Lab assay of single mutants.
Amino acid sequence: MTEYKLVVVGAGGVGKSALTIQLIQNHFVDEYDPTIEDSYRKQVVIDGETCLLDILDTAGQEEYSAMRDQYMRTGEGFLCVFAINNTKSFEDIHHYREQIKRVKDSEDVPMVLVGNKCDLPSRTVDTKQAQDLARSYGIPFIETSAKTRQGVDDAFYTLVREIRKHKEKMSKDGKKKKKKSKTKCVIM
């Protein structure tokens, strides 16, 4: 069974824990209790493949930012979460993405942009803004509501699919490099 290491990042209060708990335990946590770091595991079937999701729910508070490099190193894919009623959390996505790329030393890291709290009427981040940002990053965008469960499975499952595509691409690139290195030079 394939294991996928997913990391949920975003500013404090955007609903990272609520999304994760909704996926794992099928219930909505409405009281806000700032996370330092929590880890969850769940076995699911995605596109006919049974897999184990190892999900790291991270601290959004700035005082825990020193811990970010460590979990970013171990993560295979990242859910970059903002709240649709919090423009600052949307603007912060850029910083999370840049930090992930720096730590992973790669421009090509599996990510999904997630606009959470889409059940709320007080939207300050337009869907088109988020779609445009995701398009500019070359990553999928999904709106979710941890409260109603809308888009929750889709967000995590899409990230797994992005990781699969990335692994497939990397193995193809690896095979191309191996083929090239088999060419021999004969000096007579």
Rank of each mutant, 00 (worst) to 15 (best):
E37G: 02
K42W: 06
G12S: 09
C51T: 09
I24D: 05
Y32R: 03
G60D: 04
E31Y: 10
G13P: 10
G15D: 01
Q25I: 14
E37L: 03
I36Y: 09
I21L: 12
D57H: 01
L23P: 02
K16R: 02
S39N: 06
D30S: 12
E63I: 03
D54T: 05
V8E: 02
Y40V: 02
T50G: 10
I24G: 15
G48Y: 06
T20S: 14
T2P: 12
V29A: 10
A18M: 06
D33Y: 04
N26A: 14
E49V: 10
L52M: 15
V14P: 08
Y64L: 10
D54R: 04
Q22L: 03
L6A: 04
V8A: 05
D57T: 01
Y32C: 06
T50C: 10
E31Q: 08
Y40G: 00
L19V: 12
G48H: 09
S39C: 11
Y40D: 00
D54G: 04
H27D: 15
T20Q: 05
V44Q: 12
G13M: 10
H27M: 15
K16A: 04
Y4D: 14
G13V: 10
I21E: 07
K42Y: 08
G12D: 11
E62P: 13
I36W: 06
Y32L: 11
D57E: 02
D47N: 12
D33E: 11
V14D: 12
H27P: 02
D54W: 02
L19W: 04
Q22G: 12
L52W: 15
V44M: 14
V8H: 02
L19D: 13
K42F: 08
K5P: 12
I36H: 05
A11R: 06
V9T: 05
V9C: 08
Y4E: 09
C51S: 10
H27F: 15
C51F: 13
T20H: 01
I46G: 11
D38M: 00
L56Q: 13
I36P: 01
T58G: 06
Y40F: 10
D47W: 04
D54S: 06
G48A: 07
A11E: 10
Q22M: 05
G12P: 10
K16V: 01
Y32I: 09
C51L: 10
Q43Y: 06
Y64Q: 14
G48D: 09
G15R: 00
F28G: 02
E63Q: 11
E49M: 07
K5A: 04
I55R: 01
Y64G: 15
I55G: 03
I36A: 03
L52H: 14
C51W: 13
E37V: 03
G13K: 08
Q61F: 07
D38P: 00
V14W: 03
Q25W: 06
E62Q: 11
L52E: 15
G12C: 09
N26W: 06
Q22H: 08
T20R: 01
I24P: 02
T2H: 11
C51Q: 12
I55W: 04
K5F: 01
T2D: 15
L56G: 15
L53P: 06
G15M: 00
G12W: 06
V14L: 13
L53I: 15
T50R: 11
G10T: 00
A59L: 02
D54H: 05
T2S: 14
V9Y: 09
G12Y: 07
E49F: 05
T58Q: 04
R41S: 07
E37A: 03
K42V: 10
V9Q: 04
G10Y: 02
D38I: 01
D38V: 02
G10L: 01
I36G: 01
E62G: 12
I55Q: 02
G10H: 00
I55L: 07
I21C: 08
I36Q: 03
D30G: 11
P34W: 03
H27L: 15
G60W: 03
G48M: 06
L56H: 10
S17M: 00
K42I: 10
D54L: 03
Q25D: 14
A18Q: 09
E31T: 07
K16I: 02
Y32F: 07
I21P: 01
T20D: 08
E62S: 10
G15Q: 00
V9D: 03
G12A: 10
V9L: 15
P34A: 10
I46P: 11
T2K: 15
H27T: 13
T50M: 10
I24H: 12
T58A: 06
H27C: 15
V9K: 03
Q25E: 04
V8C: 06
E63S: 10
I24W: 05
T35Y: 01
S17G: 02
Y32K: 02
K42H: 12
V29N: 09
Y4G: 07
V44T: 11
S39G: 09
G12K: 07
Y64I: 12
Y32Q: 05
S17F: 00
E63L: 03
A11N: 08
L53G: 07
D30W: 08
Q61M: 10
L53K: 05
K42C: 09
T50E: 12
D33P: 03
P34C: 05
G60A: 05
A59W: 02
L23N: 15
E63Y: 05
T50I: 10
Y64W: 11
V44W: 07
L56K: 04
N26R: 12
Y40R: 00
D57Y: 00
D38Y: 02
E31M: 09
E63H: 09
E31L: 07
L53C: 08
I55F: 07
G60S: 08
L53D: 02
G10C: 05
L19N: 15
L52N: 14
I36E: 02
K42T: 12
G13R: 09
G13Q: 11
T35N: 01
V7D: 03
Q22I: 03
T58P: 02
E62V: 08
F28N: 02
T50Q: 11
D33C: 06
E37N: 02
K42N: 13
D38R: 00
I55D: 01
G48W: 04
Y4A: 08
C51G: 10
Q25C: 11
S17E: 01
C51Y: 13
D54Q: 04
G10F: 00
V7T: 14
T20V: 09
L6M: 08
Y40C: 01
F28Q: 03
G60I: 02
T35V: 01
D57R: 00
G48I: 04
V7H: 15
C51D: 08
V45D: 15
T35L: 01
D47T: 06
F28I: 05
V14H: 12
E62W: 07
Y64A: 14
S17W: 00
V44L: 13
L19M: 14
Q61I: 09
G10P: 00
I55T: 11
T2L: 09
I21Q: 10
V9G: 04
Y40I: 02
H27V: 11
G60E: 04
D54P: 05
T50P: 14
